[in-house]
Design a binder for these strands. Structure first.
Length: 224
DNA sequence: GCGACAG
DNA sequence: ATCTTGTCGC
């Protein structure tokens, strides 16, 4: 398989994003009806170069955890807003490879097409794996109007002249999350899955579990 | 030129 | 992202 996620420089990384962005599909595949969702997250060591990636699959009906996997790696690429994926993607893909059951829908901790080149981490993950993916970010890249206070309320997330995603209120009176299309899904469908996964907390259960697992994986690799 | 800027 | 305990409040 061709390497679609490594770059030797920030300039190369930007070029790669521009080349891959047209491959993003903003509609779901025919008959798309996932029974599970797989959350992904990464924890960083103090040296800021050792990373632990975790992936956790959750049953959409029951919310129960199905399978999980993790991987520890080294991230050489610096953190640059807009080039975030080049820092986390390699280790995330390693963790995905270790998953016993194939994912049906990815939920990334970052943006999809809500990105300067419409190719954030969630889109990159989706295009590289071919899987439907959703971006759920805790803070927005662009500007937005606060949505209404009720759970499920949305307001547009704008970049330039485009609506690139929404601010979605997952709990009443709590700061919204920022949802955007990653790959092979549409925005309303993406919001439905995020709401379904965020029954109790602000963040979807998938990303909460992946966050916890990534921290445990980092600690256990350090304490050894 | 200045500020903003996912994790 | 990470450094970090208890505490106020529903």
């Amino acid at each position: 398989m061709v390497d679609l996620f490594s770059a030797a420089s920030t300039e190369d990384a930007v070029r790669l994003q521009m080349r891959l962005a047209p491959l993003v599909e903003r509609v779901p595949p025919p008959g798309f009806a996932p029974t599970t969702a797989t959350g992904l997250d990464v924890a960083y060591a103090e040296d800021s170069t050792t990373v632990a990636a975790a992936v956790v699959t959750v049953d959409l009906a029951s919310g129960a955890e199905v399978v999980s996997a993790s991987a520890v790696g080294v991230s050489d690429f610096p953190y640059v807003p807009g080039l975030f994926a080049f820092r986390e993607l390699p280790t995330l893909l390693a963790a995905l490879d270790r998953l016993a059951d194939p994912p049906q829908l990815l939920v990334a901790d970052g943006n999809g097409i809500a990105h300067p080149r419409r190719f954030g981490l969630a889109s990159h993950l989706g295009v590289v794996t071919g899987l439907p993916s959703i971006g759920v970010a805790k803070t927005p890249l662009g500007r937005y109007q606060p949505p209404a206070d009720d759970r499920g309320a949305t307001s547009p997330l704008i970049d330039g002249d485009d609506e690139v995603g929404v601010a979605l209120r997952t709990q009443r009176g709590v700061k919204p999350v920022f949802v955007s299309v990653g790959h092979r899904i549409d925005l309303p469908t993406a919001c439905r899955y995020v709401l379904r996964l965020a029954r109790r907390y602000r963040l979807p259960e998938t990303t909460r579990l992946a966050d916890q697992l990534s921290r445990r994986a980092l600690r256990s690799s350090r304490d050894r």
